[in-house]
């Protein structure tokens, strides 16, 4: 019995280890390419670590490119998007969870519909609508569009969060609810941040410097650092928050 248990434990740890390795190896490769000098990029492409590591790509990206500006813009856009999405979707999620009203199912249907078509379909019409308002090529326009894209899923999450709090406990929950709400904010925020942070900055970056892969990877790693740190800090709230919503069954 104890031997069987020992074998099972070892197998379990090995499986976890395999998952960790699978999750991390591509990230390691990203890092490896970003510190490989351009001259060694192809000759030592397959080595696990270049014979000579250098920070030349990082130096270039930080000083000779518009990456810092893109990065700043991305940060502004994702931070404002996250804040607005959190406020707006918690209001709607609250309404969906606490009220019985006609038209509720239409709203749910509407929110689901927004998840079903390729967003590419919207780009041309959206451009046509936003350009007379002067919102194309502006950060404000970007924030509005991102908020709209992220709000449906966030509303569902918020609804299940409010569903998880017993209604008759509402007043009492206000006191200890503050902490639960904080935890919840920590879910919506990262979700939105993740979805919006870089695509913009990195895409424009790539179209400008698509020749040099080392620099591209360096930009990628730089952009990833804050996202990964943030995600590492909040991921446990993610599971907790979803559990809180699911408990009532």
């Amino acid at each position: 019995m104890t031997r069987k248990r020992l074998i099972l434990t070892v197998l379990h740890r090995l499986a976890v280890l395999a998952y960790v390795a699978f999750a991390l190896f591509p990230l390691f490769w990203l890092l490896k390419v970003s510190v490989t000098p351009t001259s060694l990029l192809y000759t030592e492409g397959v080595r696990l670590w270049p014979s000579q590591a250098s920070l030349e790509h990082y130096k270039f990206v930080l000083t000779h490119s518009s990456f810092p500006t893109f990065f700043l813009n991305s940060t502004i856009v994702s931070a404002s998007t996250a804040v607005i999405v959190t406020i707006v979707s918690s209001l709607a999620g609250y309404a969906m969870s606490r009220f019985v009203f006609r038209g509720k199912y239409w709203i749910v249907g509407l929110l689901l519909l927004t998840q079903m078509f390729p967003l590419v379909m919207l780009i041309a019409p959206m451009f046509k609508m936003l350009s007379p308002l002067g919102l194309t090529n502006s950060l404000t326009g970007l924030v509005i569009v991102y908020v709209a894209f992220n709000v449906p899923f966030a509303t569902f999450l918020m609804q299940s969060f409010f569903d998880g709090i017993p209604k008759d406990l509402e007043d009492a929950a206000m006191i200890d609810g503050a902490t639960r709400f904080t935890a919840f904010r920590q879910i919506i925020l990262p979700l939105t941040l993740k979805a919006t942070t870089f695509p913009v900055g990195l895409l424009s970056f790539v179209s400008k410097f698509s020749v040099d892969f080392g620099q591209m990877m360096a930009a990628g790693v730089l952009a990833l650092i804050p996202a990964c740190l943030f995600f590492l800090l909040i991921q446990r709230y993610l599971v907790q928050g979803l559990t809180a919503g699911a408990v009532k069954g």
Binding site: V16, Y19, V20, A23, L24, P26, L27, L30, K194, T197, F198, P199, L202, L203, G220, A223, L224, A227, C228, F230, F231, L232, Q235, R236, L238, V239
Partner: peptide, 16 residues
């Protein structure tokens, strides 16, 4: 282990 296994989710699709 949990934090590390969930990490790929933080990577933008484009970069992945």
């Amino acid at each position: 282990a949990q934090a590390l296994c969930f990490l790929p989710w933080a990577v933008p699709s484009f970069l992945s």
